[in-house]
């Protein structure tokens, strides 16, 4: 019989968060790295997490929310375990980056910025990954895959559980 570990996991996550907050307490300009590390722990930034951070480092919640919504890296909704970022930069654009995005969207059945129901994948685009010589390019988590054709996309995505 399976037992739900949600509560325990959440508690561990908050303990982890506390450590990060302690590390950055009294460090100038620490809000962004704090949010980045909090997002690594939770996968996204929930209202509760942002409120806790604000209260601990004594920054108005409005500012924390403002920063979190300004940068494209921060996410306020749960995301998939694997983040797919399809490059739509100039060089990839002229070499068919849009077709790669379509192929990924079709394979996953979600649109741009969508997350699959099983939380396995989130599909995003990025303005440039800096691997222009290899275009078109997509990145899954920290792995960059280059010189793609649309037909290569499904088997690459299958590799990520």
């Amino acid at each position: 019989m399976s037992v739900c570990h949600c509560e325990q996991t959440r508690e561990a996550q908050y303990q982890e968060l506390q450590k990060v907050i302690d590390k950055y307490l009294n460090v100038e300009g620490s809000l962004i790295p704090l949010l980045q590390e909090a997002q690594e722990i939770f996968g996204y930034l929930s209202g509760d997490v942002m409120k806790k951070i604000s209260a601990e480092i004594k920054v108005p919640f409005s500012k924390t929310y403002g920063v979190a919504t300004f940068y494209s890296q921060f996410h306020l909704q749960p995301r998939g375990r694997n983040i797919i970022r399809v490059c739509q930069g100039t060089a990839c654009h002229v070499r068919g980056g849009a077709k790669i995005l379509d192929a990924a969207a079709e394979k996953l059945g979600v649109a741009e910025n969508g997350t699959t129901k099983d939380l396995r994948y989130t599909l995003e685009t990025v303005a440039c990954l800096g691997a222009c010589g290899q275009g078109p390019v997509l990145m899954v988590n920290d792995d960059t895959h280059g010189r793609l054709a649309a037909k290569d996309v499904p088997k690459i995505l299958d590799k990520y559980e």
Binding site: E28, G29, S30, L31, I32, P33, L35, Q36, K63, G66, V67, F70, Y71, S72, Q73, F74, A127
Partner: peptide
């Protein structure tokens, strides 16, 4: 590490971002 905003390549925006702001 930047947090994903092209405008941060502009010098005053970059400094504002290091300070932890939008």
């Amino acid at each position: 590490a930047g947090a994903g905003a092209f405008v941060c390549g502009e010098e005053t925006a970059l400094l504002t971002s290091i300070e932890g702001n939008r």
